[in-house]
Design a protein around this nucleic acid. Structure first.
Ligand SMILES: Nc1ncnc2c1ncn2[C@@H]1O[C@H](COP(=O)(O)OP(=O)(O)OP(=O)(O)O)[C@@H](O)[C@H]1O
Length: 734
DNA sequence: TCGCTGGCAACCTGC
DNA sequence: TTGCCAGCGA
């Protein structure tokens, strides 16, 4: 028990209580940075040290990266391996593969990603007799995904809908499921849905998996959806040793079906559950915590809870208001560079944003200056060349995967054009053949010319050869495929330099897989590839600044955090403004971002931002005015005071005025919110030296009244001319 | 059959 | 601003 003592030594009494609780349901409601991940990890190690065989332990994390880290920590702490640590999706994929034979599923099933799903939907819509021009594939897919999240089969969905549009969607859903079944494919939703339904309806399956684990632990429980909830419940039904940890304030995935009610109603499901609350934050400074707390209390649909820390007060939060996105990026870069010069490592910094599109200006500003890693965005696996190679591998594993086969039919170009493909597809459909079977029997196909038949035959032989070749080690097989398919030759062309590098990166991943899973199957590797998430590619050992979305930041921590684009329409996002729930989720997202910071938090926003082709004027996020003003530094307080709806002023002018901020272009009326009260010119004259709160010093070139505003043209010391409306920018006369 | 060009819509988060 | 699709010429 000495080891177990050590395990508990540096834990708080509450954390210890959660770790040492053994039998029965346990709920750990933990505020941000209070150590819930730490608790789960220790708890698994503790149970192992108490003699529970590690392979009887299941811990479910939100990302594969979190799973890998936790697995490593557990091995360190308990000195044992074998605990099953994975995400829900990986868990379900593995369960389905393991139980494939008994549930009538091919163990070589393909996992379809969003692009595949869209293609499948498009194909279904095309095949439908009714006019589907009113339906957008993305919308239909959304509806299907929603239905699956509600665990509704196509039949149930069809029975519940009214109206032409929904009836068409119901038909499309049925066709879509049939198409996936024909292709032996499952989409992300299916993985969860199938397992949830099997656990409920298939006795053998349920029995087998209920006996598989003695303890079940679920992290980030606040972001579980209905299927995940059922899976957790069923897997733990026999022994009820279910430990859930989460933070309702960090629920940020309700838009894809997650339900905060799962965590809020845990004690209703398990009235005898032990509930442990962790309220001491170990991550952030007092200033950061106060800032975050003062924001989240604005959520009405929330249980009152407090979070405290013994950490130092720390630096005040900074707020930087830029002219445009490029300048915002510059400000971030300058801050980072300055801080780095004072001794910070690059990896101490993270820059968060609401939408991937925002990463562009940041990346541009950092290019060649600051080592950085972009998480997500144009994901690695979304690249054409990677998808091509993956399609080859999928076809090698699963011959029924027509969608993937279609992708590579003529890639690289081998003389099987659209017409030939169409005819093959039509012939296959007419005869109930898979596309692969049609390709194999192409010489019997009607209306195919001799030339086309030859090309198809050669392709079929190629696939046969792949099928016969050893699939392991995976890296070697990938190279074999690239070589024999002619893809490598295509990659060698000078214009494909970058593509070749990406493929090489993929090959390195395959080699890594071989190393970590000696004798591992190609199907397993394909599963891993299908289920990687953006953050999984974050390498914490690389000394580089991390750029990622707020969603991707969940669960991570960094000494210095930049929260960019704190603007109305962006955070909260325009599409979330429809209802209060939407805004509250955005507020939680902002809260998650803020609470990632250990020592420094810098929030930035921009007055103008490119939107489509043109520039749009922005307002600072309402969240900035909900955060206690006194957590900001002086410059931040001043900037916010001058920007806010409750701006403090020396004088009032005309409240009806159309505002204009430091505009690089033309003045525009603001779209929402009350216009901030204008400020008096302040006795400025042409030739005066002035200071802008963020942009620095300059000289007044001109003062004009325009549209009830006072517009000052300033020659900036840093170069260039800028327009400021005195009503909106606190220019200080020097 | 292939590859290029131009017009047009979309731009939120992601397993 | 970008990425997708349709249409066209070689
Ligand atoms: N008892 C403790 N003593 C010292 N440090 C601790 C303790 N508990 C947690 N920490 C530290 O606090 C930080 C946050 O812990 P952890 O990531 O487990 O929190 P969390 O609750 O999962 O956070 P979040 O929900 O915000 O993602 C980590 O750096 C961790 O090492």
């Amino acid at each position: 028990m000495r080891e177990a003592e050590k395990l508990l030594a540096d834990l708080t009494p509450q954390q210890r209580e959660a770790v040492t609780h053994v039998e029965g349901p346990l709920l750990v409601v933990a505020g941000a940075g209070s150590g819930k991940t730490r608790v789960i990890t220790r708890r698994v190690a503790y149970l192992a040290l108490r003699g529970v065989p590690p392979h009887r332990l299941l811990a479910v994390t939100f990302t594969n990266k979190a799973a890998d880290e936790m697995r490593g920590r557990i091995e360190q702490l308990a000195g044992t391996r074998g605990a099953w640590v994975s995400t829900f999706h990986s868990l379900c994929a593995s369960m389905l593969r393991i139980s494939a034979d008994s549930i009538g599923l091919s163990r070589d099933f393909t996992i379809y990603d969003r692009d595949d799903q869209l293609k499948a939907v498009q194909q279904c819509l095309k095949e439908m007799e009714a006019d589907t021009s009113m339906l957008q594939p993305a919308g239909v897919l959304q509806a299907i995904s929603n239905a699956k999240t509600r665990l509704e089969s196509p039949e149930q969905f069809a029975a519940a809908v009214t109206g032409l549009r929904d009836e068409l969607i119901a038909k499309a859903y049925a066709k879509y499921q049939a198409l996936l079944a024909r292709n032996a494919a499952l989409d992300f939703d299916d993985l969860l849905l199938r397992v949830a339904l099997l656990l409920q309806g298939d006795e053998a399956f349920r029995d087998r998996w209920q006996r598989r684990f003695d303890f079940v632990l679920i992290d980030e429980y606040q972001d579980t959806n209905r299927a995940q909830y059922l899976i957790a419940r069923e897997l733990a039904a026999r022994h009820r040793n279910l430990c859930a940890t989460g933070d309702p304030d960090q629920a940020i995935y309700t838009w894809r079906g997650a339900s905060i009610r799962n965590i809020l109603e845990f004690t209703r499901d398990y009235p005898d559950a032990r509930v442990v609350k962790l309220e001491r934050n170990y991550r952030s400074t007092k200033a950061i915590l106060r800032a975050a707390d003062s924001l989240i209390v604005h959520n009405a649909l929330r249980h009152e809870r407090g979070l405290w820390t013994e950490n130092p007060e720390g630096l005040p939060v900074r707020f930087l208001w830029a002219d445009d996105a490029d300048q915002e990026a510059q400000m971030v870069v300058q801050s980072i560079a300055a801080s780095h010069a004072k001794g910070r490592r690059w990896r101490d910094f993270a820059v968060f944003y609401r939408t991937n599109a925002q990463s562009r200006s940041l990346e541009e500003a950092m290019r060649h200056r600051i080592p950085h890693r972009l998480i997500g965005a144009v994901q690695f696996y979304g690249r054409q060349e990677i998808k091509d190679l993956v399609a080859y591998l999928r076809v090698c594993v699963n011959e029924l995967d027509d969608l993937s086969l279609e992708r590579i039919l003529n890639v690289p170009v081998r003389g099987i054009g659209d017409r030939t493909a169409d005819r093959l597809r039509a012939w296959a459909a007419a005869n109930g053949l898979s596309l692969r079977a049609a390709v194999a029997a192409a010489d019997q196909a009607p209306d195919l010319g001799a030339k086309a038949k030859g090309a198809v035959k050669a392709f079929s032989d190629l696939l046969d050869a792949f099928r016969a070749a050893p699939k392991s080690p995976v890296g070697a097989f990938c190279r074999h495929v690239l070589d024999k398919s002619g893809y490598q030759d295509w990659l060698e062309r000078p214009e494909n330099e970058e593509r070749k590098e990406n493929v090489n990166e993929f090959l390195a991943k395959a080699d890594k897989f071989d190393l970590e899973h000696p004798g591992g199957e190609l199907a397993e590797f394909m599963q891993e590839v299908a289920l990687v998430s953006d953050v999984d590619n974050l390498d914490p050992t690389a000394d580089a600044v991390s750029l990622m979305t707020l969603h991707a930041a969940k669960g991570l921590e960094f000494p210095v955090v930049f929260l960019t684009g704190a603007e109305e329409g962006l955070l909260p996002h325009i599409n979330a403004l429809r209802n209060e729930e939407g805004i509250e989720e955005e507020r939680r997202l902002c809260y998650v971002g803020m609470t990632r910071a250990k020592e420094e938090l810098i929030i930035t926003a921009s007055a103008w931002r490119a939107q489509g082709g043109s520039m749009a004027e922005r307002e600072p996020s309402r969240f900035l005015f909900e955060v206690r003003r006194d957590v900001f530094d002086n410059a931040g307080q001043r900037a916010l005071a001058s920007l806010g709806p409750d701006a403090t002023l020396d004088a009032w002018d005309d409240a009806e005025s159309k505002p204009l901020r430091s505009a690089p272009g033309e003045a525009r009326p603001r779209k929402h919110g009350p216009p901030p009260p204008p400020r008096r010119p302040g006795g400025l004259a042409v030739g005066d030296r002035v200071r802008h709160p963020q942009l620095g010093d300059g000289w007044v070139l001109a003062i004009q009244r325009a549209d009830k505003l006072t517009v000052v043209t300033v020659a900036m010391a840093s170069g260039g001319k800028r327009l400021f409306a005195l009503e909106y920018v606190a220019l200080e006369k020097l």
